[in-house]
């Protein structure tokens, strides 16, 4: 019971933090839509092209724009000492990593999920594909959040090279892009692909706590 109480209090804090920084999330989504416009302006308005390319473009842009906000993942809490406080209050680094991952999923990725239907209208993605897109994004976004946790905890003490975090996420997200777009475009083995993506999700979940936890510990020790 105490543990559950602790979790709820942690998420109350996250909710307050994200509510006050809501303009960041809105800017993120605006970036997503603007990049869709730019894609359309650069390729041309023919709808047939997008029925073929649409899903790929959508997933690429989702990946790009959700890695934009990674800098904020731990940085604020780290710089004002709140990570140390949480740790001293009984949250182990691994637990912080898990909780923060889900918080990123809820407060950053879910708004993207909600904006997918609108984006799919713009890119001429059909209804049947939209359903698959939603499922693949639900799974993929959880993996992306875990990878984001790993990369941003690695870069807490990196004061010079801000883009490194995004690069780390993007190189590891190659399988996600491949299988997520595969889920949508390939009709016959839908279930097995969902299975593969869930398998990757479980592996990332297993790796995330200890990798992020170790990096957070290193960052706090050497700050």
């Amino acid at each position: 019971m105490i543990f559950l109480h602790k979790l709820l209090n942690f998420y109350y804090r996250e909710y307050k933090l994200n509510l006050s920084g809501f303009q960041d999330i809105l800017t993120n989504i605006t970036f997503f839509f603007i990049s869709i416009f730019i894609f359309i302006f650069s390729i041309g308005p023919e709808k047939e092209t997008y029925s073929f390319l649409g899903v790929g473009i959508l997933w690429t842009l989702l990946l790009l724009s959700s890695t934009l906000s990674l800098r904020k993942f731990y940085q604020d809490d780290f710089e004002n000492g709140n990570l140390t406080l949480l740790h001293l209050n009984g949250f182990s680094f691994e637990l912080i990593a898990i909780l923060k991952t889900f918080s990123h999923f809820i407060f950053v990725q879910i708004p993207f999920l909600l904006s997918i239907p609108l984006a799919s209208i713009l890119l001429n993605v059909g209804n049947e594909k939209l359903y698959r897109l939603t499922i693949s994004f639900l799974l993929g976004a959880l993996i992306l959040s875990s990878l984001g946790s790993i990369s941003s905890s690695m870069n807490l003490l990196n004061k010079r090279n801000y883009l490194l975090g995004s690069v780390i996420v993007m190189i590891f997200s190659i399988p996600i892009i491949i299988f997520s777009v595969g889920i949508i475009n390939i009709n016959e083995n839908f279930n097995s692909l969902v299975g593969i993506l869930s398998g990757i999700l479980l592996i990332t979940f297993a790796v995330n706590p200890w990798a992020s936890g170790a990096c957070l510990k290193i960052a706090i020790q050497n700050n």
Partner: peptide, 30 residues
């Protein structure tokens, strides 16, 4: 890109380990 040697070597080692788990997945997916 890190200033502190003691930090960057550990971060690099963790990255190498995460990468070694991820490389087979990437290879398979590609």
């Amino acid at each position: 890109s890190f200033e502190n040697v003691r930090v960057r070597e550990k971060i690099a080692a963790i990255f190498i380990l995460v990468g070694s788990i991820n490389l087979p997945i990437i290879k398979f997916s590609v």
